[in-house]
Every structure is written in structure tokens, then in C-alpha cells.
């Protein structure tokens, strides 16, 4: 009995020693380079990656550092940036990635697969298509840019995660960064990307493809401002697809004296503006063979055939 207890004790001590020797692979926080955002850029035929890192010397979470690298591919640029740092890269808290301004569908796929492989264990990464900033500019403004993008994402309730950009087989829709608000880029395999910078079209496109649930814009002529929550309903009819945009808590105001500040008038003008924007979006996307709003899907579900040639109309309703 005593012999057995002695053996059990020895085994226990051995097990604990093995545990301690084989494990202990944890890494102190201070040795990690915590990446908050990655800004990809393309300049002179080279790929650049600017990493926004958490400053580990500071207790303030909004204190950042910047590292950058370049290479023939985005992966090389990212590796180059990582090599310039002493610590171990940690992408677990990366929540923003921007892509070069001229990014098309094929490049998007490359970036997505690079992020899937590299950025582990990563949370939902929000993707933006960047404006045409240079690497130097990005290095200087990365911290502010990150904060501004976060603010815009929060303000317009944008959600464009890495997992959702490739949810359609040959097309994607992504928000684009611009100084005021955001734009939208429609990427289609084998076609040049479409980019909408005008707020009404960009925000309408984001709402219709499910990336946002809020409209907050001023008409391009500066006449009316609008703020509203938005939900979308698709009705597939035999001869057309009806997209019902339901606006909640809409707040409209006239910004010029030409337009009376009457609710009915403003609503009528808003509806007309949105319908125009929708028609333009449909025409443009059809021209490159894209269907970012999945109108074909609803036709196929409810009418049995995709009906890609059927017209689509937007109906604006106020809740």
C-alpha cells in the first residue's frame, strides 16, 4: 500500500514537472505587438502595408505606434512590416483593414485569403477601400484615420466584416473611405470596380445590401438634410422586383429657402431622390453584370427564376 502511494506521489510530481516543462508557452503582453489596424496601399507598382500598433508603453488605449513595410505582394509587405518590429505579432485585436483605392474583385480575394491566414485569432475585421493616400501620408495619419474610421463606422452603423465580403460568388460591395462620410465600391469579377462617392447613392447601396441601417446625408445640391433608420423588404413580382425601403424616425429639414420646410414636400423630394439613386445604381451594376442587392435571389425564391432582366423599383415608406 505504502509502496503504491509512493509510486502515485512520484507519478504526480513527474506529471506536474512535465506540465510545467512542456507548457508555459504563454507570452507576456509586453512582448506582443498588438495590431489594431492594417492599411494596405499600392505605390509605384509596390505593395505597402502600414500597421497601426498599440503602444505598450502607455496605459492609454488610444496611444498608437506605426510600422510599415513593402514588397511585391501584400503578404510580403505585411511580413516586411512585421520584421521591422521586435515583438511577436498579435492580430487578435485587429478590427480594421483598408485596401488600396484601385482594389478590384481578384485583388480583394487575395487580400481576404491573406487576412484569413495571417490575422489569427482575429475578431470581425471591418474592411474599407481607402482613398488614394500615399504610404507616407498613411504613416503620419494612421492613428487619426483609425479613430475617424471607427467613428464613421459607429455613426453610420456600418458592418462590412471580412466574412461577408466574399459571401457572393463573384461580386462584393465594400465601403470606401472619404473625408466626409463614406462611399461604396461595387466589385465584380472581370469588370472594373464601380465607386460611388455621392452620399445618397452610397448610403442607399449600403442599406440595400445590408451593410448599414442608417441614412444620414445632405442632398448633393445641399438642399435637404435627412436622418433616418432604414429597413428593406424585397417583393418579387412577375413583372418586376419591388424594393420597399421603410424609413423610421425620419428627420428631414430644408437647408435652402427655395424648398418649404413642410414634411410632405420634403418626403416627396426625398423619395424622388432615392428612387433616382436606386435607378442609377441598378443601371450601373447591371451594366457590369453585378447584382449586389440580390434581386435575382428573391425572384428565384418567390417566382422560381432569377429574372435578371426584370425591372426593379424602389418604394419609400415612412414608419
Amino acid at each position: 500500500m505504502a509502496d503504491r502511494i509512493c509510486r502515485a506521489k512520484k507519478s504526480l510530481i513527474l506529471a506536474v514537472a512535465v506540465l510545467l516543462l512542456t507548457g508555459c508557452a504563454g507570452r507576456p503582453l509586453i512582448e506582443r505587438e498588438i495590431v489594431r489596424a492594417i492599411f494596405f496601399a499600392r505605390e509605384d507598382g509596390k505593395e505597402h502595408a502600414v500597421l497601426l500598433l498599440q503602444n505598450q508603453e502607455s496605459e492609454d488605449s488610444s496611444d498608437y505606434e506605426v510600422a510599415s513595410g513593402e514588397g511585391d505582394s501584400a503578404a510580403q509587405a505585411l511580413a516586411d512590416a512585421a520584421e521591422s518590429l521586435d515583438g511577436v505579432m498579435f492580430y487578435g485585436l485587429t478590427d480594421l483593414v483598408t485596401l488600396p483605392a484601385d482594389c478590384d474583385w481578384e485583388q480583394l480575394q487575395e487580400f481576404a485569403s491573406l487576412l484569413y491566414e495571417t490575422a489569427q485569432p482575429s475578431p470581425e475585421i471591418t474592411l474599407f477601400v481607402m482613398d488614394s493616400r500615399t504610404r507616407d501620408n498613411l504613416e503620419q495619419t494612421a492613428g487619426d484615420l483609425y479613430d475617424e474610421m471607427q467613428a464613421v463606422e459607429k455613426k453610420y452603423r456600418i458592418s462590412c466584416g471580412l466574412e461577408s465580403v466574399l459571401s457572393q460568388a463573384n461580386q462584393a460591395i465594400l465601403p470606401c473611405w472619404q473625408e466626409t462620410g463614406y462611399g461604396i465600391a461595387v466589385l465584380r469579377a472581370g469588370a472594373p470596380p464601380l465607386r460611388y462617392v455621392e452620399p445618397v447613392r452610397a448610403q442607399l447601396a449600403a442599406v440595400l445590401c445590408g451593410q448599414s441601417r442608417k441614412l444620414e446625408f445632405v442632398f448633393s445640391d445641399g438642399s435637404i438634410s435627412c436622418t433616418a433608420g432604414a429597413t428593406v423588404l424585397f417583393h418579387a413580382l412577375r413583372d418586376r422586383t419591388q424594393v420597399i425601403l421603410r424609413l423610421q424616425d425620419a428627420s428631414l429639414s430644408s437647408l435652402t429657402q427655395d424648398i418649404p420646410n413642410e414634411e410632405q414636400t420634403l418626403r416627396r423630394l426625398l423619395s424622388a431622390e432615392l428612387e433616382d439613386a436606386f435607378a442609377q445604381l441598378c443601371a450601373d451594376t447591371r451594366a457590369i453584370g453585378a447584382d449586389p442587392f440580390r434581386l435575382g435571389f428573391w425572384q428565384a425564391c418567390l417566382q422560381g427564376a432569377p429574372g435578371n432582366d426584370l425591372p426593379a423599383e424602389l418604394v419609400v415608406e415612412y414608419a
Binding site: 507576456p28 498599440q54 488605449s61 487578435g92 485585436l93 485569432p121
Partner: peptide
């Protein structure tokens, strides 16, 4: 959480923990 999975910790707290650990 601190040694293996810092991503589970809110970033504001993480900065303080890193300082304390250092």
C-alpha cells in the same frame, strides 16, 4: 486570458494589464 488569449480582454483594460505585467 492575459498570457494566451488577450483578444478576449477589452482593449482599454488590456493596456493597463500590460503595464502592470511589465
Amino acid at each position: 486570458a492575459v498570457e494566451f488569449a488577450p483578444e478576449t480582454i477589452p482593449i482599454k483594460l488590456l493596456a493597463k494589464l500590460a503595464q502592470a505585467e511589465a
